[in-house]
Simulated scan of single mutants.
Amino acid sequence: MSGKRIIKCPNCGVFNTNRDYCENCNTLISHQKKREIKEAKIKQTRIEAAVYELENPNLAERLKKHPFFLYRIIGWILYSSIMIVSAIGAGLAWFITMVAAG
Rank of each mutant, 00 (worst) to 15 (best):
C12L: 15
I88L: 08
V51Y: 03
K34H: 05
E36M: 10
K38Q: 01
I7E: 02
K65H: 11
M1G: 01
M98H: 06
R62F: 01
Q32P: 01
F15A: 13
F15R: 07
K4E: 06
I6F: 03
Y79Q: 12
W94G: 00
M1L: 11
A100G: 03
Y21K: 14
E48R: 15
A49C: 12
Y21R: 14
N18V: 04
V99Y: 06
I6Q: 01
P57Y: 11
H66N: 14
G91K: 01
I82K: 02
I74P: 07
P10D: 13
F95G: 08
T17P: 05
Q44V: 09
K64A: 09
A49M: 12
G91W: 04
G13T: 15
T45W: 14
I7S: 11
G91A: 07
L63T: 10
G89N: 11
M98N: 08
I82C: 10
E55T: 11
P67L: 12
Y71A: 12
V51N: 04
A49D: 05
A60W: 03
L28A: 00
L78W: 03
C22L: 11
C25G: 08
C22M: 08
D20K: 13
I77S: 08
A60K: 06
M1R: 02
I74R: 04
C22Y: 00
N26W: 02
I73Q: 12
N18L: 13
L54S: 14
V99W: 06
R35L: 14
I84R: 08
I42K: 10
E61P: 04
L78M: 14
N11W: 02
V51E: 05
I6M: 01
S30L: 09
H31Y: 00
H66K: 14
K41C: 07
F68S: 15
G89S: 13
E61K: 06
C9T: 11
L59W: 01
I82L: 09
F68D: 14
L28M: 06
R35Y: 04
N16T: 09
T17E: 10
A87P: 05
R35N: 02
K33H: 04
P57T: 15
M83K: 10
K43H: 15
C12G: 14
A93G: 09
T45R: 15
I42S: 10
A87G: 12
A50Y: 06
N58A: 12
C22F: 05
N16M: 07
P57N: 14
L92V: 00
F69D: 11
K8H: 01
E48N: 15
C12K: 07
E48K: 15
L92E: 02
G91I: 12
L70D: 11
C22Q: 07
T27A: 12
I88H: 00
C22H: 00
K65P: 07
N11E: 12
A49L: 14
N18A: 02
A40Q: 12
K43S: 15
E39L: 15
A40H: 09
C25Q: 00
F15H: 07
C9P: 10
H31L: 13
I96A: 07
F69K: 15
P67W: 13
I73L: 11
H31E: 11
N16S: 10
A90W: 05
L54C: 06
Y52I: 01
G89K: 13
I42E: 05
